[in-house]
């Protein structure tokens, strides 16, 4: 028996919004420690990793490990039927071929349940090595979204360059060149408005705007986003899911042909 109840059901709605443009189907791996998802996009350029820890749920029971393969477009349609303040419960029997989503209004006066067929997905799991990144940049998630949206008008790629002075995002194309520089904030009233940079060595990498734009669908999840970069390795774009986990996107850099 698997059952996970989340009073703050809108977190799950937001997680799905942040995945559905990148992935069409994926497996949710459930264990007594929580729920995890790892999947590559269709072109194998990026990887998404989601963690939802058991202790972040209001009730969590997972008697035996199970992998629930789901069509994320369908899951997203179902979760859109939940109100933002609904309590969401996910339930499945052991070795079941379907999963049930239960949405309760906060006053318990409306209860809806939706059943969805599970899929058998033979998904490849990748080992992500522990990496000490050369630069770790934290900035407001909405700022990052805006920067990527703005620079996407100029070209297909964004160059992210981090030095001790700050971080620079650049794009070039037919209409011209765009550069956006962010300095580390000296002092801020609110922590979530800060730009902070932890840098071991300067690093410059080039990434496809298309993917960065898809990652910023997770902006609704968290006030801040963390970008971790090292030379010649994938960028990590991380959004926290409340205090229960994270969505991490890994994006392969553009390389010299």
């Amino acid at each position: 028996m698997f059952e996970a109840r989340l009073v703050q059901g809108n977190l799950l709605k937001k997680v799905l919004e942040s995945l559905k443009d990148l992935l069409t189907e994926a497996s949710w791996d459930c264990a007594d420690t929580g729920i995890q998802l790892q999947a590559m996009d269709n072109s194998h350029v990026s990887l998404v990793s989601v963690q939802l820890r058991a202790d972040g749920f209001d009730k969590f029971r997972c008697d035996r490990q199970l992998s629930m393969g789901m069509n994320l477009t369908s899951m997203s349609k179902i979760l859109r039927c939940a109100a933002n303040d609904d309590i969401i419960t996910i339930k499945a029997q052991d070795q079941a071929d379907n999963v049930t989503f239960v949405f309760e209004s906060p006053n318990q006066e409306k209860v809806a349940d939706y059943e969805m067929k599970l899929m058998n997905l033979d998904q490849e799991h990748l080992g992500i090595p522990e990496t000490d990144y050369a630069a770790v940049i934290k900035l407001p998630a909405a700022e990052f979204q805006r920067i990527i949206k703005d620079l996407s008008q100029f070209g297909e790629s964004v160059v992210i360059s981090c030095t001790k002075e700050g971080v620079k995002f650049s794009a070039a194309g037919d209409i011209g060149v765009g550069n956006i520089k962010l300095a580390q904030t000296a002092s801020v009233d609110k922590e979530e408005e800060a730009v902070t940079i932890e840098m071991q060595e300067p690093v410059t990498l080039t990434f496809a705007c298309r993917y960065l734009n898809m990652f910023t669908k997770a902006t609704c999840l968290a006030p801040q986003v963390t970008l971790s970069m090292s030379p010649e390795v994938p960028l990590v774009v991380e959004y926290k899911i409340g205090d229960m986990g994270h969505v991490r996107y890994y994006l392969a850099p553009k390389i010299e042909d």
Binding site: V45, L126, I128, P234, Y250, K254, I255
Partner: peptide, 14 residues
């Protein structure tokens, strides 16, 4: 020009 790398170049499948 720059080509797009794939994630499998960096992370081992298991």
């Amino acid at each position: 020009s720059r080509g797009q790398g794939v994630i499998l170049q960096y992370f081992a499948s298991h």
